[in-house]
Structures are given as structure tokens and as C-alpha cells.
Computed example of a mutant assay.
Amino acid sequence: MGLTLIGLITAAFLIYAIKWIKHRIEYAVSDAVFVKAQEMPTLSFQVAGKVIEVYKDMGDWVEKGEVLARIEPEDYKLQLEMIESKINSLRAQREALRIQLDRVSKEVRLSLESATLTSEETLKKEEYLRAQMGELEVQIELLRKDRERLKDLLDKGLIPKRKYEEVETNYLALLERKKALQKSVEELRLAYEKSLVGVSMARASLSKVKELENQLRVLEEEIAALEKQKESALRDLEKTTLKAPFSGYIAKRFINVGDVIRAGQPAFSLINTDTLYVEVLLEETKLRGIKKGNKAYVRLDAYPDVVLEGRVQEISPVSAATFALAPRDVSAGEFTKVVQRIPIKIELKDKRLLRVGMGGRVEIKRE
């Protein structure tokens, strides 16, 4: 009876041992399991100020774009209003300057056109009168010769006196007409010279137009610079409200109402639950047969009776000790053999039970 019992116990032990060995051959098992999140940023205000409202606390679920907290916005509103006031004032100056520039430009253009037209017309009139004087001088020369010839004939008694007097009258009339034309030409010359002065003055007035254009350009540049300041002030005002960049749970709250915080000071830690995963620090001696896509079974310490199924998503090309804060120094020749651990990322199908920092046990199916 005793031998039978011993035999049964031995057989049971052998069966368990064979199954255990077979399981260890088919699976890589490790207790170095940690739940982590790919996205767990620390959120902060990008401007300084006093916290006036806090809407969320640790463990609260938030939607993307939901407001988490606010800081006092009055200083930023005042800065924005001051910039807008300057912009409005400069815009009013710009509008007045545009009206003045338009008026002055028209006046200068009309003045220049009028002076140019007057000088051209005056010059044409002068040329016309000079042409008439040329013709008149030809007529006067002819009458002078006729007058001298008739005078000789009159002295000899060959012609009546009346005929000579008729030529004399015409000759004197042409001389008077010549004097009148000469005077008109002189007056036109003076008028032409005055018109040239008007043209010069009109052209000189163009400098005033250029001056107004330069003033307008400077105003445009000032307004453009203030517009950029306004955009910056608007962004600062928007930054007085802290919003969630994605949906997730608040892991920690670092601020309270009444706190005076600086830009960049931590306010909340937010976890993106869609990025939760399990990291396994697997011994290098167990890497045989472990590849991307292998099935993995995880038991969390918090839920030992629940098996979570997943797959190997990534296998690190370096050991966990490579990026340690205090790496081992073996340059002195002292060296103790230590089994290195390779980080392996496992993506689970069901992440509802996962919490960052949880531990557990994993079994990875080998190929």
C-alpha cells in the first residue's frame, strides 16, 4: 500500500515536472512586468499668473479640449486692449493721411497739368504772333519801297498827291500794327516765363506727395508690427486657459486655486489610456524564440485570476542598463557577470484594467 502511494506521488511529480519543463520551453516567463503609458505628459500653463479656477482632480476623466484650469486673465486682457487701442489710433491716422495724400496728389497733378498746358499755349501764341510779324515786315518793306518810288514821282509832278498819301497812310498803319504785335509778343514771353515758374513749382510740390507717401508707409509698418503684437497677446490670453490635448485620466494635480505659478510650472499629469502598454524586462537568457507578433499572456498582481491576452509589439535593441543613470564602470578591470534584461513592449487587447505602475507576471509564447 505504501509503495503504491509512493509510486502515485512520484508519477504525479514526474507529470508536473514534465509539464513545467515543457511550459518553460514553449514560453518565456518573467515577473519583471510594469504597466506604462506612451503618452503621459505633464501639462502646464505657458504664461504666468494666479490660478483662479481648477475644474479637474486626480482620477477624473477628461475629453480632448476640455478646460482643466484657468489663471487670472485681466493683465493679458489689458495688454490686448492697449495694443488694439494703438492700432485703432494708427488706423485713424492712416485714413486721414490717405485722404490728405489723395487730395494733395490731385491738386499737384492738376496744377502741373494746368501750368504745362498754359506754357504750351503761350508758346504757341508767341510763335504765331512772331510768324505774323515776319509777314508784316515783308509788307512794310514793300510799302517802304513803294513810298520812296512814289515820293520821287510826286516830286517830279508825275503822280497826284492823293496816291502818294494813300501809300503813306498804309505804311504808317503797318508800322503801328508792328508795334502792337511786338508788344503782344513781349507780353506773351513774360507770360511764358511765368508759366515755366508755375511748372517748376508744381513739380516741386511732388516732394510733398512723396513725403506723405513715406509717412503712410511708416504708419503701415507700425500697424503691421502692432498686429503681430496683437496676435501674440491673443495667444497669451488664450493660454490663461489650460485645456486637455487629448482624452484621458488625470494622473496628478499639482496646482490649487490661489497659487501664483510661473510659465512652464507643472499643473496636471494626464494619461492617454489608448497608449497604455505592458513593459517586460526579460532576461537575455530567455530571448530564444521571442519575436514581434508572439502571443503574450499577462496576469496583473491586482487581478491574479484575470488573464489578459496581447502580442509582442516591440523588442528593444539595447538592454535596460544601457540608459541607466549610473551605468556600470568596468574600465578598471573589475567585472561581475550580471544577466542583462531586454525591454519588450506588449500591446494588450483589453486595457480597461491597466493602471500605470502596476506589476504582474507574463508568459510569452516562443516560436
Rank of each mutant, 00 (worst) to 15 (best):
E66F: 03
E66C: 07
L68K: 01
L68F: 00
A69G: 07
A69L: 03
A69S: 02
R70Q: 00
R70P: 00
R70T: 02
I71K: 00
I71Q: 01
E72Y: 06
P73R: 04
D75V: 02
K77W: 02
Q79R: 15
Q79E: 01
E81K: 10
E81I: 07
E81C: 04
E84K: 00
S85D: 13
S85K: 08
N88S: 12
S89G: 06
S89F: 06
S89Y: 09
S89Q: 12
L90H: 00
R91W: 10
R91H: 14
A92Y: 11
R94H: 13
R94Q: 08
I99S: 05
Q100M: 04
L101Q: 10
S105V: 08
K106P: 08
E107H: 01
V108K: 01
L110Y: 00
L110I: 09
L110A: 13
S111I: 06
S111A: 14
S111M: 07
T116G: 14
T118V: 08
S119D: 12
E120Y: 01
E121S: 13
E121V: 15
E121Q: 13
E121M: 10
E121P: 09
L123D: 15
K124C: 13
K124S: 14
K125W: 09
Y128S: 04
Y128V: 04
L129T: 03
L129P: 01
R130H: 06
M133Y: 04
E135C: 05
L136F: 00
E137R: 07
E137N: 09
V138C: 03
V138D: 12
V138R: 10
Q139M: 09
I140T: 04
I140D: 01
E141G: 12
E141K: 14
L142M: 13
R144A: 07
K145L: 09
K145D: 11
K145W: 08
K145P: 09
R147I: 05
E148I: 12
R149D: 12
R149A: 08
L150M: 06
K151V: 13
D152W: 11
D152I: 04
L154A: 03
D155C: 12
K156G: 07
G157S: 09
L158Q: 07
L158P: 10
K161L: 06
K161Q: 03
K161C: 11
K163E: 04
Y164P: 14
Y164F: 06
E166C: 02
E166R: 03
E168F: 05
N170F: 09
N170C: 14
Y171T: 03
A173Q: 11
A173W: 00
L174P: 05
L174S: 14
E176H: 14
E176D: 02
R177C: 02
R177N: 10
A180R: 05
L181G: 03
K183E: 04
S184T: 14
E187N: 06
R189N: 08
L190C: 06
Y192D: 14
E193P: 05
E193F: 03
K194L: 11
K194M: 13
S195K: 03
L196I: 07
V197S: 10
G198F: 15
V199M: 04
S200F: 14
S200W: 06
M201Y: 07
M201I: 09
A202H: 00
A204C: 08
A204H: 04
A204N: 10
S205M: 13
S205H: 11
L206V: 12
S207W: 13
S207C: 07
S207G: 04
K208F: 08
